[in-house]
């Protein structure tokens, strides 16, 4: 697996930021954490052909993994309830303002 470059991560960061913020989904204010996750997304895109959640085990089958292709189908409910998505990449404005307690988001998948 070839190394992901900083330029690739920064390009993805800019792309996603412009698309997701207008929808109310902000990157976690912990920028190093976000950087690592975006790198993970690019690694997953490289090895599976699609950018699935860096915090879930993919099975390398797009159909079986379609619910966890980022942004996952669980993001809306998780951000609404916990202020953050499962992996912590996307958060609400209030979460970044420290108005929501940081807690581990339980896995909804398979409920």
């Amino acid at each position: 697996m070839s190394q992901i470059s900083a330029e690739q991560v920064e390009k993805l960061h800019a792309q996603l930021k412009s698309i997701q913020e207008p929808k109310g989904y902000f990157f976690n204010k912990d920028s190093q954490y976000v950087y690592d996750l975006l790198e993970g997304l690019l690694q997953n895109r490289q090895r599976y052909g699609y950018a699935c959640c860096p915090c879930r085990l993919a099975v390398n089958d797009r159909e079986a993994d379609k619910d966890i292709i980022c942004p996952c189908v669980y993001r809306e409910a998780d951000v609404a309830q916990y202020g953050t998505c499962y992996c912590g990449l996307y958060v609400s404005r209030e979460f970044n303002e420290g108005k929501i307690p940081v807690q581990t988001v339980p896995e909804r998948r398979g409920e």
Binding site: D36, L41, Q43, L57, G88
Partner: peptide, 10 residues
């Protein structure tokens, strides 16, 4: 762990 997971790295 997963090599790409932020919580795992933490």
């Amino acid at each position: 762990t997963l090599s790409t997971c932020g919580h795992c790295k933490s």
